[in-house]
């Protein structure tokens, strides 16, 4: 990123970025997410060569990505269009290289990194993975939460559509509203495996029955 570009973006912070075509890039960058102070530390945007330091750095990144996504309720990020201000700090003119972003996400996906993200499988073979679900709550936690809500609202035994679970008024104020559909299916499958739910129908008109 050139300094001129950085200055321009600082001068007009409300200009929509070129990435705003992506549904994942929200306009809430000015929304008051409190970035931790270490994001103003220039070396934070260079992956450290020292193994110990790097391990710590990756943990810091992991916690930043999860809190950021939880704050903005992002369920999925893609490498080709990551949230503009997450991996870059324009005020110090630093950004994490795409290959480093991949390293961070790979770390987060690993068991050592706490499996905070899950890569989406690619369509073509040999293609590099591009998108991942960010599990600021684990699939199990989501499953528990949804099941508890169904239980509380007395909807056990009735069939709910995926649409209802994601977008209806009944779930407004719930953390999982507008959850990425793929992730929601992943979560529901957890319940299916436990024998607490059953999925009917196909893609568009899928319905879920909870037990």
């Amino acid at each position: 990123m050139s300094i001129a570009a950085a200055e321009a973006s600082v001068a007009s912070p409300h200009t929509p970025s070129i990435q705003s075509t992506s549904p994942l890039t929200t306009n809430t960058t000015q929304s008051g997410f409190a970035f931790p102070t270490y994001t103003s530390f220039p070396p934070f945007y260079t992956l450290q060569p020292n193994v110990t330091t790097r391990a710590h750095q990756l943990d810091l990144w992991s916690s930043l990505v999860t809190t950021y996504c939880a704050y903005h309720r992002l369920f999925r990020i893609s490498l080709s269009s990551p949230p503009a201000d997450l991996f870059a700090n324009r005020s110090i003119n630093r950004s994490l290289k795409p290959s480093s972003i991949r390293d961070v996400l790979d770390h987060m996906a690993s068991p050592a990194g706490g499996q905070k993200i899950e890569w989406l499988s690619t369509t073509a073979k040999g293609e590099q993975k591009d998108s991942c679900y960010v599990l600021w709550k684990s699939a199990n936690e989501w499953a528990e939460e949804i099941h508890a809500w169904v239980d509380e609202t007395g909807q056990k035994g009735t069939v709910l559509t995926v649409y209802e679970l994601r977008e209806s008024d009944a779930v407004s104020g719930k953390d999982w509203r507008d959850m990425d559909e793929g992730l929601l299916r992943r979560v529901l499958n957890v319940l299916v495996k436990r024998g607490k739910a059953q999925i009917f129908g196909q893609e568009e008109s899928a319905g879920v029955k909870f037990f």
Binding site: F41, P42, T46, Q48, N50, Q57, N93
Partner: peptide, 12 residues
């Protein structure tokens, strides 16, 4: 660096 006493910034 080897003693992890300093951090590198390669973007300057």
């Amino acid at each position: 660096v080897a003693d992890s006493l300093v951090w590198i910034d390669e973007q300057a």
